[in-house]
């Protein structure tokens, strides 16, 4: 059975003037057992907000419609306390910027042990031993010594390792990693992704990996969905997406990447529209080279073109 099922998820934000903006629009997908599922898209496409909705950590002025099933259980049927017991325990999250998500005035050891004492019936001593083991698992050298470090004493890569240790402390069924390596240098990024991949295998977890980097998607995910303007534009296995990308936006993203000297870049014209200012019909129509009158009239539905390959474009076959 799938670990996570998201069905018809829409997220709305209320502004101060009480106007409501829909930033995620009828998004549905499933994450299978021990699968790495990727979400890729540019800033403002709704990929992080989707994750926040799953974690029930949307800001106060936002709400969602649709259903989120975690291991078959509808999240909205749970009480606040029930959701709190899931978070950090059965489903956990790794954020982009480890410095802002760790508490600067507590030692990293305390913060990892806190996850365990909150969710598991363990003594402080047991939590401490377990936290040191976790630090060793994420390959932090001298874990007994680093246990007493404060976040500012560590490098960015080390802090992200601490975040991973906290996220996997209770052996969750699902880890959501939201741009986990964007703030890191490329050699450290490779190490962290390699570590995440290894821990995922070891603990047999599922992972939702959110990134803007197509290279990371290609190397680390099994299935992927491409988001634009709060919608799914394309969803397929990673292999198929890169072999036969069908949506003009997906192709545009791939063609925007430099592939070597002398190979011309074909960027997507225009810029990402604001959620309160989307074009009529297909939301990509104003930047699309294949756009016709039909595209401007009605928004195309997400259609399954071959088994497991979904595309939101009238031109896909």
């Amino acid at each position: 059975m799938e670990v996570l099922k998201v069905d018809g998820l829409s997220v709305y934000f209320k502004s101060r003037t009480q106007t409501v903006v829909r930033v995620v629009n009828s998004v549905g997908f499933e994450v299978g057992a021990s699968e790495i599922f990727g979400i890729v898209g540019e800033s403002g496409c709704g990929k992080s907000i989707t994750a926040y909705a799953i974690m029930s950590i949307l800001p106060d002025n936002a709400y969602y419609e649709g259903a989120i099933y975690f291991q078959g259980q509808n999240m909205s049927s749970l009480s606040d306390e029930g959701r709190r017991q899931l978070r950090g325990n059965r489903v956990s999250m790794i954020f982009q910027e480890p410095m802002t998500s760790l508490n600067p005035v507590l030692t990293i050891g305390y913060q990892i042990a806190e996850v365990l004492t909150t969710h598991k019936a363990v003594s402080r001593k047991e939590a401490r031993d377990r936290a040191i083991q976790l630090l060793a698992d994420v390959k932090i050298p001298f874990p007994e010594v680093r246990f007493n470090d404060y976040p500012h004493q560590m490098s960015g890569g080390m802090r992200q390792r601490v975040m991973i240790a906290m996220a996997v402390a209770c052996d969750p069924a699902l880890v959501i990693a939201d741009e986990p390596t964007t703030a890191l240098d490329v050699t450290i990024q490779a190490q962290i992704l390699n570590l995440l991949h290894g821990i995922k295998e070891e603990k047999n977890m599922s992972m939702l990996l959110i990134t803007h980097d197509l290279g990371i998607i290609a190397e680390h995910t099994r299935r992927v969905m491409v988001m634009y303007a709060g919608r799914i534009m394309e969803l397929a296995t990673t292999e198929e997406l890169f072999k036969t990308p069908q949506h003009p936006y997906t192709r545009g993203l791939i063609n925007s990447l430099p592939r070597g000297r002398g190979i011309a870049l074909n960027p997507i014209p225009g810029f990402v529209p604001r959620p309160e200012n989307l074009p009529e019909g297909c939301k990509f129509s104003d930047r699309c080279s294949l756009c016709t009158k039909e595209c401007k009239e009605a928004e195309p539905a997400l259609r399954e073109t071959t088994t497991g390959h979904f595309v939101r474009c009238i031109w896909s076959s």
């Binding site: 050298p141 560590m154 992704l193 390699n194």
Partner: peptide, 26 residues
């Protein structure tokens, strides 16, 4: 070798020694 590649043929079969060599990262 650390740069993630879309095309599998450009992925260097690293010598991914460095991936585990975190000791002195800091």
């Amino acid at each position: 070798s650390s740069v993630p590649q879309i095309n599998p043929i450009y992925r260097t079969p690293v010598d991914r020694v460095h991936l585990n060599n975190v000791l002195e990262e800091a």
